[in-house]
């Protein structure tokens, strides 16, 4: 599949329709986000491991709103872009999406029900009917006191790196509630239980697109995907709302005032 993507990227760049393609490149034996331009060696283009390229797109767009580029876009990247666009963080008009379908291994790693974007040409076989196992495992079988004990143990490992927030494609508030000392005291380790993690979970309700980067960025190994998935499940069950699937719908948790 990498070969097909490399060919597509080269074609796009050579055609002059896009100035640059945000992708991933093999450098020093590791994969890193890279801005490919016409004439670059596309044989170095890689597709994994996944990095939140939607965030790179948002940063570039912020640095120069006129910049026209394409980007390698998996299902979660597209969902992130859609939610960013709804919140005026990015203008999707200047961006061309190169749809990439996740293979079974990647889909199962994230336990992702929609491991492909919604664009017309997707490179790779979109796994539309993937049978995923129960993502919760032992967790749902626990009693409420057991669940509380479970989360307490997990949250107390936290060392307030803010990594989950920093890496999250959906976190871009200029002033973050986690930092102002009002809801949780500054400088405490572990952060005041359970405030840090519950604030994040609630702020992500209707925003989280299930990319799993938070859990991958956690040095304490806290199962953040489980926490966020529970909230995503509730948003679906209670409000029939799934983040990142519709460019127009508004998070039902937002109150709209008409004057």
């Amino acid at each position: 599949m990498e070969r097909v993507v490399r060919k597509k990227v080269k074609e796009l760049l050579d055609s002059g329709n896009v100035i640059a393609v945000i992708g991933l490149k093999d450098e020093l034996g590791k994969t890193t986000p890279y801005l490919f331009r016409r004439g670059d060696d596309v044989s170095k283009l890689k597709l994994s491991p996944h990095y939140p390229l939607a965030t790179v797109a948002r940063k570039l767009h912020k640095a120069d709103p006129e910049y026209k580029f394409a980007l390698l876009c998996r299902g979660c990247d597209e969902r992130a872009l859609i939610e960013m666009a709804k919140r005026n963080q990015i203008d999707l008009d200047g961006i061309m999406l190169i749809g990439i379908a996740c293979d079974e291994k990647m889909a199962r790693e994230c336990n992702c029900a929609v491991p492909y974007p919604s664009c017309d040409d997707i490179i790779g076989e979109p796994l539309r009917d993937l049978e995923l196992g129960d993502p919760y495992g032992e967790f749902k079988k626990m009693s409420t006191p057991e669940k509380l004990e479970f989360w307490k143990k997990q949250f107390l490992k936290c060392n307030k790196c803010y990594g989950c927030r920093n890496i999250c494609p959906m976190c871009f508030c200029k002033e973050c509630e986690l930092e102002n000392g009002l809801w949780l005291r500054k400088g405490r380790l572990p952060p005041d239980y359970p405030v840090y993690h519950l604030i994040r979970a609630f702020h992500l309700a209707g925003k989280c697109i299930g990319c799993g980067e938070c859990e991958k960025a956690c040095p304490a190994g806290i199962p953040l995907m489980t926490l966020n998935r529970l909230v995503r499940d509730d948003m679906k069950d209670l409000f029939d709302y799934v983040a990142g699937t519709d460019g127009e719908n508004v998070n039902p948790l937002y109150t709209k005032e008409e004057f």
């Binding site: 590791k30 994969t31 491991p49 990095y51 060392n159 790196c161 991958k216 040095p219």
Partner: peptide
């Protein structure tokens, strides 16, 4: 963060 770094594996401290 660099996911393939042997020490940090894509995780960092504050």
């Amino acid at each position: 963060p660099c996911k393939e770094d042997p020490i940090s594996e894509g995780k960092l401290c504050i």
